[in-house]
Write a protein that binds this DNA or RNA. Structure first.
Lengths: 163, 163
DNA sequence: GTCGTCAATCGAATAGATTTCGGAAACATG
DNA sequence: CATGTTTCCGAAATCTATTCGATTGACGAC
């Protein structure tokens, strides 16, 4: 609504740097974007207040702490009311082993990203939280062999408007 | 050999806190886990050196910066050599609009998470980076209506062993 | 063109945090 | 019980974040 927020290239540079490494100090960011630390600090504070910078999360090596199996669940739901679906999404997202829930169009209705210790753990999660649920018609499971992620921001203005 | 990393519950508490909020100060974490700031600092340093804490990333409100459309691509690949597949995965992961690539078992071989400005942008990404590629047999696209994620660590020791 | 207004930036000062390090305490080992 | 090892603590030093008043520059009104 009121949030007609505008950003210049310095704001985007700050966002990009923090998306790549949230542990950069304000001083480092200021130097990287060519601003005084105090000015940079004001901008970051503003980005947080405006809801553009939502927070930061540490990346934990899950294999190192014993979660060596990752899976993606494709869930088909019955034709139910929106309330029931939303409720199921929320309770699913609250499961400790679930890292993300996507409500999508297409062949399946829900995509669920799950991190578990082993196959038995995975079987338990599926049978306990999905197969026993009325809303769920069917669950397909895909094992994740490997993943690659990155945290860089795409360029905001397509390929122009910057100069 | 050297990598027989062991963790106690304080290490897990630190990891959990930082996974939820990487901007917590060392002082705050120390207070939360009941340690002196210097001791807590040593533990965090060790977790980083051992490769358990991999880094931290700011969470950016992508809608606020103009990326209001998210999609998941399900990619089927031809029966090719491992090299060609790995190469394709790497180049795909390097696309700015791609946030994650998952190599999986099941109906499709690759799951690609994409963030774009609009439909035209999405169409461009797919046709340019996927449809024109020899390795790709078929791409199915799912629009993401909503997503829920959380960054809390599951309990490491199943339901026992903690006492 | 000139003035007034507003927003952004800077630099210095303060308050606060991180980081290092020697010594004490806890723990396991023989 | 003695010993070596690890972990923890507290204080000192260093560095950083944060605030604030003053300056600059851009922009619109007249």
């Amino acid at each position: 609504m009121t949030a007609e927020a505008e950003f210049d290239r310095i704001d985007f540079a700050i966002l990009g740097l923090l998306a790549k490494d949230a542990w950069l100090s304000n001083k480092q960011i200021a130097a990287a974007v060519g601003l005084a630390p105090s000015s940079c600090h004001e901008r970051i504070k503003s980005l947080r207040a405006r809801g553009v910078l939502l927070g930061a999360h540490a990346e934990v090596n899950l294999q190192a702490v014993g979660f060596s199996l990752e899976a993606v669940l494709f869930v088909q739901l019955g034709k139910l009311e929106v309330e029931a679906v939303d409720s199921f999404v929320s309770t699913t997202a609250a499961i400790a082993e679930v890292r993300g829930v996507f409500l999508v169009s297409g062949r399946s209705d829900l995509i669920v990203d799950v991190v578990v210790r082993d196959m038995q753990h995975l079987k338990m999660i599926i049978s306990e939280h999905f197969n026993q649920h009325d809303v769920v018609l069917r669950v397909e499971t895909s094992i994740v062999f490997s993943r690659q992620q990155h945290y860089t921001l795409p360029r905001p203005w397509s390929t122009a408007k910057t100069g």
